[in-house]
Amino acid sequence: MSDSKHRLAYIYVFLGAALWGIIGLFIEELSQAGFSAFQIVTLRVVSASVMLVLFVVLKNTELLKIDLKDSMSFIGTGIFSIVFFNWAYFTAIEEVSLSVAVLLLYTGPAFVVILSRFFFKEPMTSRKVGALVLTLLGCVLVVKVFPIGIEHVSWYGISVGLGSGFGYALYSIFGKHALKKYHPLTVITYTFVFASAVMLPVSGIAISTSDLQSTHVWMNILGLGFFPTALAYYLYTMGLSMVESGRASIAATVEPLVATLLGVFVFNDVLTAFQVVGMLLVLAAVVLVQFKNADTLK
């Protein structure tokens, strides 16, 4: 791969992760409108799937053609990843603190690196391992697990939280496999179609007509479905199609940085010195993982 294409891949990943980081804007508004967490997730995946299907129909209907035998890849990205990690993530939030749940979710890159080693024979490099360590330490500081600490930890919450990280990682694994045969638009479209097929009946969503009469609510539903979902996943998947899944997932950890900065500038959160250090560690990991030539660990 040329250096320019290599850089472009990371730009796609960064932009996608940055868009994931602004999801709090839409969640905050929809929560205040009375929607539950799982209802918001359902609105997210359904609105994204509708947008994506309509766009692909207008762009090129050939992109909707898949072999039924390949459905497992989209079951993997849509159900095993999107649906499962959202369930596990929200369950972890209920069992442990939000900051701990976020940290456990971001064990995802470690799972990606390990699984990619077995499924795609991606090399386990010293720089990649170093980037994982920096990412973990950085996220610990960014989400303020340290120096606050963890007391009376729910081991069920920890287990489910790690499950959310595993589910989060599965998108990169199943997505990478699907990208060997299909266009990124095909991958993300069927990801959200399959996710919607499961979320609609199990989420218990019940929206009264009055809930949808507000233009403000509709703007936030459409914004949620497009910016941090359809567009974000498209950009990340484009980057994933160009670089190793392990490197892409590590680079995507700029998401909590964006979310934290959003909290500072929009919600008036106070940024601590520890969080600044954590951000620098994550950024260092992102820079480190971009180096293509690294010694493979034996």
Rank of each mutant, 00 (worst) to 15 (best):
G204W: 13
G163K: 04
G204L: 01
K176S: 12
Y171D: 02
Y168F: 15
V187M: 11
V187N: 01
P201N: 07
F192L: 13
G161F: 00
Y168E: 01
I158C: 10
K181Q: 13
V198P: 15
F174L: 10
G163W: 01
A195W: 02
F174G: 10
I158M: 15
S164D: 00
F194N: 00
S172L: 01
G167N: 02
S203D: 09
S159M: 12
Y182I: 09
L185F: 15
V187Y: 07
S196T: 13
T186V: 04
T191A: 03
I205Q: 01
V202A: 09
A178C: 07
I188A: 14
V193F: 09
P184Y: 01
L200G: 00
V202L: 15
K176G: 01
S159H: 06
G163N: 00
S164V: 00
V202N: 06
K180C: 02
P184M: 03
K180R: 15
F192M: 14
K181N: 10
K176C: 01
T189P: 09
P201G: 05
S164A: 12
G204D: 04
Y190H: 08
I205V: 15
Y190N: 08
P201F: 12
F192D: 08
G175L: 03
G165M: 06
Y171E: 05
G157Q: 02
S203R: 03
S203N: 10
S196W: 07
A195Y: 01
L185T: 09
L200Y: 07
G163S: 13
T191C: 08
F192Q: 12
I188D: 11
P201I: 14
H177M: 14
G165E: 03
F166S: 05
T189N: 07
F166N: 00
F166L: 15
G165H: 07
I173L: 11
L162N: 06
L200Q: 03
Y190C: 07
F166P: 04
F194H: 00
G175E: 03
G157N: 02
T189G: 10
K176I: 02
H177A: 14
V193P: 10
V193S: 08
H177G: 06
A195F: 01
Y168W: 13
V187A: 07
G167M: 03
F194A: 11
Y168N: 06
V193C: 13
P201Q: 12
K181E: 13
Y190F: 15
